[in-house]
Design a binder for these strands. Structure first.
Length: 436
RNA sequence: UCCCCGGUAGCUCAAUGGUAGAGCACCCGGCUGUUAACCGGGUUGUUGUAGGUUCGAGCCCUACCCGGGGAGCCA
C-alpha cells in the first residue's frame, strides 16, 4: 500500500493509496460522508460509504469533526464532481483523534479572532497558499543569487549600535552591557562584499517603530545583496532582474496557490524588465501636478520624502514596479553616495511595487570616500567611535559598491495580492501583538 | 506619539434609555453526491473593566484595558 500526498494524486489514478492528514471539512448524508481531507500539500474529497467501510469506521468518521487527525486508504479516481477533480473512494482508515469544536469554522471570522488563533489559522486554505508562495519567493531569491555568483553571508542579529541611527531599536541586556536587535545587515554586508565580491544577507530585522499600518511589522525578514565594484545602475538592474526572476518562479510553481488567493495572474505576468525609472525630480513633478492631492493635506512638498499616498499615486501609473532614484541627500541615510552631477542628491533608489503596494526595496550606491563619510557621520551627529570598523572599509581598498534591502513580507504580500503584511509571515509581530 | 472606528452567545452580528435576539457552530433525529448541503428538534449570556447620570443603562457621561484602520517613520 502506497502512502502518498494529495499534490501527487494525479500520478496514482486507479491505484489504492493511503493519505495522512486532517479533516478540513465534512458533510454527511445518511449512509455516506464526504470528508475534505487536507495533508499540507493540498485538499482532496474522500467519500466514505457505510457499505464499503463497515459500521464501526463509518460511525467513527461521523464523530470526527473539523481538524480530526485521520488516515484514509482508498482508490484514487478522477471525478469531475469533486473539488479539485480527484476523489478517494475510501476502503478503510483510522481516526487518530476525533475532534469536536475546532475554533475556526468555514464561516467568517474577524481579524482579531484569527490573529489570536494564528497557530490554528495557518491550517486554513488562504494562509496555506500564502505560506507556500512565501517559500517559493525565498527559493526564487536564493536561486537567483546563487546563479549569479553571490555568497550568502548573514549579518549578526545582536548589534552594538544603530546602523542608521534614526529608527527606534529594540534594546536587550547583553551580559554587562546593552545590545540592540539589528535593523539592517547592510553595514556587515558591505564588509562581506569587500571579502567575497558579491554577497547577500537573509535574516530577520527588528524595528521598534510604533507603526500601525498594513505595511509594518516590528519583526520582518530582509534580503540585502551588496556588490563590490557596483554603481547605482548596477544596483537598479539587479533589483529589476531579481524581482522579475522571483515573480516568474512563483508563476511557474505556485499556480494553484495563486488561484486560492484569487490573484489576477495577468498582472504578475507583466512583471518583466525593463522597469520604469524616474528620478526623484521627475516623480516630484508628477506629484505636484496630481489633481488627487493638489490643495489637500496630502499635497506634496518639494524636497520632502514621499509619503504612502504619494507612492501609491506613482505606482498606479505603471503596470510594473517603478524605480525612483536620486533622492535628496538630506532625507536619506548617511552612507549613501552623493550624485557627482548634483551634490544635493544621492545615488539612491526606492522600488515601489506595482498596484499601489508601496516601497518594497530601498538601495543605493554607498559613499566610498573616507572623508566624505566622516563628514556625514559628524553632520548627522552619529557616534563616530561606533563606526570605526565600518570606516576601515574605506581605509583599506575602498571601491565603488552598492546594494539594496528587500522586505520579504512586503514582496510576498505584493505577489499574493493581499492587503496586509501580517498575513505574509507565519507569526506576525506588531506593536500590539506578541502572541501566539 | 497623534487622529478615527470597534468590544453583546463559541463565531459573525442585531437590539428608540423600558422583558438581550438572529444566523452559523455544537447536541439529537432523517437523508447514497455533498460543494458555506438540506429538513425537524434542542442547548448557549458577568453586553471589555471600574465608576457615574437615571425610576430604569448593552445604549448616555468619565477613566482605563484590549483590538482594528490611518498618519509620521520605514522594508
Amino acid at each position: 500500500m502506497t502512502v502518498t500526498t494529495i499534490e501527487k494524486l494525479s500520478q496514482h489514478v486507479g491505484q489504492v493509496v493511503t493519505l495522512q492528514g486532517w479533516v478540513y471539512d465534512r458533510t454527511s448524508k445518511g449512509k455516506l460522508h464526504f470528508v475534505l481531507l487536507r495533508d499540507g500539500s493540498g485538499i482532496v474529497q474522500c467519500v466514505v460509504f457505510r457499505g464499503n467501510v463497515g459500521e464501526d469506521f463509518f460511525n467513527q468518521v461521523a464523530g470526527a469533526g473539523q481538524e480530526s487527525s485521520i488516515t484514509l486508504t482508498g482508490l484514487v479516481k478522477a471525478e469531475p464532481r469533486a473539488p479539485g477533480g480527484f476523489e478517494i473512494d475510501v476502503q478503510s482508515g483510522r481516526v487518530l483523534q476525533a475532534v469536536q469544536g475546532y475554533p475556526i469554522t468555514p464561516k467568517e471570522h474577524g481579524i482579531e479572532y484569527l490573529m489570536e488563533h494564528r497557530h490554528l489559522w495557518l491550517r486554513s486554505k488562504r494562509p496555506w497558499a500564502v505560506m507556500r508562495i512565501r517559500h517559493a519567493v525565498i527559493m526564487g531569491i536564493r536561486n537567483f543569487f546563487d546563479e549569479r555568483g553571490f555568497t550568502c553571508m548573514d549579518a549578526p542579529i545582536f548589534t552594538p549600535n544603530a546602523c542608521e541611527g534614526t529608527s527606534t531599536l529594540f534594546e536587550v541586556p547583553y551580559f554587562e552591557q546593552m545590545a540592540y536587535l539589528t535593523q539592517s545587515g547592510q553595514l556587515y554586508a558591505e564588509a562581506a562584499a569587500m571579502a567575497l565580491g558579491k554577497v547577500y544577507t537573509f535574516g530577520p530585522t527588528f524595528r521598534a517603530e510604533k507603526s500601525k499600518t498594513r505595511r509594518h511589522l516590528t519583526e520582518f525578514w530582509m534580503i540585502e545583496p551588496e556588490m563590490a565594484y557596483a554603481t547605482l545602475d548596477d544596483v537598479m538592474s539587479l533589483a529589476e532582474d531579481m524581482l522579475s526572476y522571483v515573480v516568474a518562479h512563483v508563476l511557474k510553481t505556485r499556480r494553484a496557490e495563486l488561484a486560492v488567493l484569487e490573484r489576477d495572474v495577468a498582472k504578475l505576468e507583466k512583471i518583466v524588465p525593463p522597469f520604469p525609472r524616474l528620478t526623484y525630480e521627475e516623480a516630484s513633478r508628477i506629484l505636484l501636478d496630481s489633481p488627487e492631492i493638489k490643495g489637500t493635506d496630502l499635497a506634496f512638498q518639494p524636497g520632502e520624502d514621499f509619503g504612502a499616498p504619494h507612492e501609491t499615486i506613482i505606482s498606479n501609473l505603471f503596470d510594473r514596479p517603478v524605480m525612483v532614484h536620486r533622492y535628496p541627500a538630506a532625507i536619506k541615510a548617511f552612507y549613501m553616495k552623493r550624485d557627482p552631477l548634483d551634490p544635493t542628491k544621492c545615488l539612491s533608489v526606492d522600488v515601489l511595487g506595482s498596484e499601489g503596494v508601496g516601497e518594497i526595496i530601498g538601495g543605493s550606491q554607498r559613499e566610498d570616500e573616507l572623508q566624505l563619510l566622516l563628514d556625514r557621520i559628524e553632520h548627522e551627529k552619529l557616534p563616530q567611535e561606533a563606526f570605526q570598523w565600518y570606516l576601515d572599509l574605506r581605509r583599506y581598498g575602498s571601491v565603488p559598491h552598492g546594494g539594496f534591502g528587500l522586505g520579504l513580507e512586503r514582496t510576498v504580500a505584493w505577489i499574493c495580492g493581499i492587503e496586509h503584511v501580517r498575513e505574509a509571515i507565519p507569526f506576525p509581530r506588531t506593536i500590539y501583538r506578541l502572541t501566539p
